[in-house]
Structures are given as structure tokens and as C-alpha cells.
Design a protein around this nucleic acid. Structure first.
Lengths: 198, 198
DNA sequence: TCGTCAGGTAAGTGTACACTCACTTTCGGC
DNA sequence: GCCGAAAGTGAGTGTACACTTACCTGACGA
């Protein structure tokens, strides 16, 4: 394989691992597979990460940051508060094509919570996500697009639960998941509850 | 170990496995651990199940049925439609003490979806859960306690997503998870949205 | 009372996996 | 052009795990 400077190789390993873990799970993916997918041999992995778990934690952190960054960028493309909220709900990174694969890493991590370091990484991520969502709700409320009936914190938890539930269920590929017979989507229900009927 | 008739031993193995898998995950739990926890030796497991996976699938099916049965029983204790709905939301088996441990098995299973048989078992379970929830919503709507603004199907998906999101997040032990500073809980928000303010 | 047979065990087997050792190749600065 | 450091490799090692083999034991119906 072509030689790469350490920082690039490290990043490439993380990117490759993201795909692999998303697909096979943390326990399911092997270091040999990862090495092959990255086009290197196993010792290279251990030159950059002290263990498979260490790599996984780095991946959780990176995935979490990237998720929020993507979301933020998508929101920043418009200044209309209602449209911003609509994007907050609909372009949920757990749902969009871009994010879905990546976000499965987080869901995978949630089944490894008796590892205290993985647990900590997850807590960091979820707290950051909640803070981000709450801030968006505050903005929407200040703009008068969302009623102040419920606090931003609790609204953010609601959105987070919904998004995660969706993200967990979507990969099961259940027919008509999240839709009713009229083709209405859960996303629209949430929009209407928050923004009122258009 | 004391000798047991086959059906009882099989059931005991499933019960023990439920606890173990909930705690350590499907890949994380070993057959040796399971045998020890059940007070038998490994070949006994293989007398009752053809493989670890086979046992896991039996467990998913049992857990799913049990979950719905518990919920149904809890609802049946009252006939007041509003109270029934409140219990539907608050006594979510993914949330209550009784159900939580058990339900982690389902969440664990969700990360093993590239096994087609596990995937099928999960789809069966989620579909059954959705059907159950939709029926409860229909009843509540017929009793006039819940507006017919949204279809029962879509409302059921909403509840299912919320419950799963909660169930996935709760084990992380994040401080003030699902609450705001005033101590309000997501559950109450959902109640108010569905039943109106008391 | 004794034979049968289901329930049980001790002690493996093969394999897959995380991780390592000893060594080689390439690149960039002088 | 050479040398030192960093990037890379082939070929293991130890271990843990799912699953098996060959055997034992005791309850119960005839």
C-alpha cells in the first residue's frame, strides 16, 4: 500500500472503521477485516491506536462531532426560523443518507455500555447533542415560531428520543415504518406539533 | 445441579439468558457464562438449543410476547380511557423496572441485524408492538380522549419511537436525562400533547 | 429390582481473534 | 548519495470461545 503520513493514515483508519463498525458492529468487526479494508496490515492499526477499543472511542468522539457539524451546516443554509426547525426535525443525521451509516456507530456503541470508557464517550456525545438541540429550540422560541409551553430542555429530549428511536428502527427495514396508510410520515406529525398546521 | 424436566430447564435457560444478554450483550455473553449462571454445564444448552443464535432468537420471541402481555395486563387494571392512555405512555415496558432489563435484549438484538433470522424475529416483534399500540390509540380515540387529528398508525409509530429512544438512552445514566430544570419529565409532555392539560 | 432413557458431566477440539515480534522499505533533510 | 526516522510487513502467539465426544447417574414403569 501507498505510504501515508501518520495523521492521514490515522484518519483513513477511522473512516474505514466507521463504515465497518456501522455494518458489522463493534464486536462483530475484526481487526483483520479493518486492516484489509484499509489496505494495510494489522500492526499498523496498533501503531495508531493502543487497542481496538481505543480506536472505537476515538471513532465515537469523531462521529459525534461530525454529526453535530453536519447538522449545523445544514441548518445554517437558511435563516428562516421555521425552515430551520423543519430541517432540525427532517434532516436528523440519524435519518439522512449521509448520516445514517455513520450514526449506526453510535447505536452500536450503546450496547457496549459496560465498558466504562465507551460509556463516558457516549455520555459526552449525547449531552452535546442535547445541548445543541436545546439551543435550536431556544432560538425558535425566541423567534416566536415555537410555543413556550414546554421548556427547551424537555423539548430537546423529546426530539432526541424521537430521532434515536427512528434511527434504531429504520435499519430494520419494516414495511411502512413511520408512515400511515395515507403516506403521512412521523416527521410531518412532529413538524405540525411544533410549528402548527401550515 | 438438581435435575429438571426438559421444558423447565429450557425455560430456566431462557430466563437466565435474558438477564445475561441484557447485561453483557449477545456477542459479549458467552455460553460458558450462561451455563454457569444457570447452574449446569455447556452441553445442556446444546441439548435444548441448536446454537447460541437459536437460543437468542427464542429469547427475542419470548421477550417480545412477554413485553406485550405485561403491558396489556397493566392496562387492563383500569377501564378509564385516560388512565389507560397514561399507563400506555408511562408504564412503557422499555422504561419500567420490570421491563427495562428484559427490554435491553431487544435493543441488543438491533445491532445484530445482519443476521437474517435475528432480523426477522425483530421485525415480527416490532410489528406486533406497533399493532398493539395502534389498537390502544384507536380505543382512546373512540372514547373521545384523544383527538383524531392524527391517524392511530402514525400516533403508534410516534409512541414507539419515543419509547425506544427512551429505552436506548436510559441505560446510559445521563444526569437529568429526559427532565428539565423544573423536574418535568418527557412522559408528562407526551401525556399533555395527547390528552390535553389536566 | 432392574433396564431404559432422559438429564447430566468432564474434558476436550478447532478456530478465530486481538495483539506482538523481528525485520524491511521508503522518504526527506543534509 | 547517505542516513536516520517513520511507515510498513510476514508470520506468529496466547487465549477465549462455540460447540462436541464419550461417558455417568438416578428416577420410574414393567
Amino acid at each position: 500500500m501507498r505510504r501515508l503520513p501518520a495523521t492521514e493514515r490515522r484518519q483513513q483508519l477511522l473512516d474505514t472503521a466507521a463504515q465497518l463498525f456501522a455494518q458489522r458492529g463493534y464486536s462483530g468487526a475484526t481487526t483483520a477485516e479493518l486492516a484489509r479494508a484499509a489496505g494495510v496490515t494489522e500492526p499498523i492499526i496498533y501503531r495508531h491506536f493502543s487497542s481496538k477499543r481505543d480506536l472505537f472511542i476515538a471513532l465515537i468522539d469523531q462521529t459525534g462531532e461530525e454529526t453535530i457539524r453536519l447538522w449545523e451546516k445544514h441548518l445554517s443554509e437558511t435563516t428562516d426560523p421555521a425552515e430551520r426547525l423543519r430541517r432540525l426535525i427532517g434532516a436528523n443525521p440519524m435519518v439522512t443518507n449521509k448520516g445514517r451509516g455513520v450514526y449506526r456507530v453510535i447505536v452500536q456503541a450503546m450496547t457496549e455500555i459496560d465498558d466504562e470508557y465507551i460509556l463516558e464517550a457516549l455520555q459526552r456525545h449525547i449531552s452535546a447533542l442535547h445541548r445543541f438541540l436545546a439551543q435550536q429550540v431556544i432560538d425558535a422560541q425566541d423567534n416566536g415560531r415555537v410555543s413556550k409551553r414546554f421548556s427547551p430542555e424537555i423539548t430537546a429530549w423529546l426530539l432526541l428520543h424521537l430521532g434515536l428511536g427512528y434511527g434504531v428502527l429504520a435499519p430494520l427495514g419494516i414495511p411502512d415504518h413511520a408512515r400511515d396508510q395515507d403516506g403521512m410520515h412521523v416527521r410531518q406529525v412532529v413538524e405540525q406539533l411544533m410549528l402548527g398546521v401550515k
